[in-house]
């Protein structure tokens, strides 16, 4: 059925408005980060990113934190959510509530709560910023739980797990070979959200006095705004690329609709 001209104009207008709304700040950032002086253009700010040892240190720290958080997500959060979904359905509500708590508690309150623990940690064990991974693993819970839960409800994983069990699969094989690949899209979106959150987190790391990516950007921004904006844009592009690389459910070749007649 052909759409009328009016309908097409309306649809394209909406698309244009939304795209402009999202793209304008990015274009403005690109414009600002490539400015040298008042009238010249150049890549000075972009080239300077890697000549700032503190910034590189902050990036490495944040990437290490992201890696730890991903590991915690894959080996702790995902199995827990799947296990509760499959075996302990009565705990679904309490788990959801616990997972949503970090969303309801402001960052500053969280910092006040955990600052004593971090003080004790820095005195008695380590001052490594990687200990922030514990707080970050908590911060990602509301988003990761939602995306995992939606993926689990979208497929009858219960039957799939039982089918695998009857074929001889152990619990761990059922989990890692059947259930997790089935909810891969949910796991991947949880991963991307987690990475974005860790790379973008500022409040907690700054208040706890750790030098992470965002803290370093802020510090650089106080001296040279163009470098700070270039780094911010680069991190944004990095997360966007991650989103684009996310595998979809129809990863395996073309989406055939060649259902034969019985």
């Amino acid at each position: 059925m052909k759409r009328s001209l009016g309908q097409r104009i309306w649809r394209w207008s909406i698309l244009l408005v939304v795209t402009s709304y999202l793209a304008l700040p990015i274009v403005a950032m690109l414009d600002f980060s490539t400015k040298v002086g008042r009238s010249k253009r150049g890549l000075y700010a972009w080239k300077a990113i890697f000549s700032q040892p503190e910034l590189v240190g902050g990036i490495v720290t944040s990437l290490e934190l992201a890696a730890i958080v991903i590991a915690l997500l894959l080996f702790l959060v995902v199995p827990t959510v799947v296990w509760v979904h499959l075996k302990l359905p009565r705990l679904r509500r309490p788990l959801e509530l616990i997972c949503l708590l970090p969303l309801a508690i402001p960052g500053i309150v969280l910092v006040v709560g955990v600052s004593k623990i971090y003080m004790w940690l820095s005195i008695h064990w380590t001052e490594s910023p990687l200990t922030l991974s514990a707080v970050y693993a908590m911060l990602i819970l509301p988003y990761t739980y939602r995306s995992l839960s939606a993926a689990l409800f979208a497929v009858d994983v219960h039957t799939l797990a039982e089918a695998a069990r009857t074929l001889g699969a152990s619990t761990s094989r059922t989990l890692f070979q059947i259930v997790i690949p089935t909810i891969k899209a949910g796991v991947m979106s949880a991963l991307v959200i987690s990475i974005a959150l860790v790379l973008g987190e500022y409040t907690i790391s700054s208040l706890l006095n750790y030098k992470t990516f965002q803290v370093e950007i802020n510090l650089i921004g106080q001296n040279d705004g163009t470098i700070a904006v270039a780094v911010s844009l680069a991190s944004l592009i990095f997360v966007l690329l991650l989103l684009l690389l996310m595998p979809t459910a129809k990863r395996h070749g073309k989406a055939l609709l060649d259902v034969d007649a019985e």
Binding site: R165, T166, T182
Partner: peptide
């Protein structure tokens, strides 16, 4: 005996093929 040691083949009411496998 656990289900994975019983050697029973089962076909379920709901479609139970593993979606990520051919």
């Amino acid at each position: 005996q656990a289900a994975n040691h019983r050697g029973m083949g089962m076909v379920f009411q709901a479609y139970s093929l593993f979606p990520h496998m051919s």
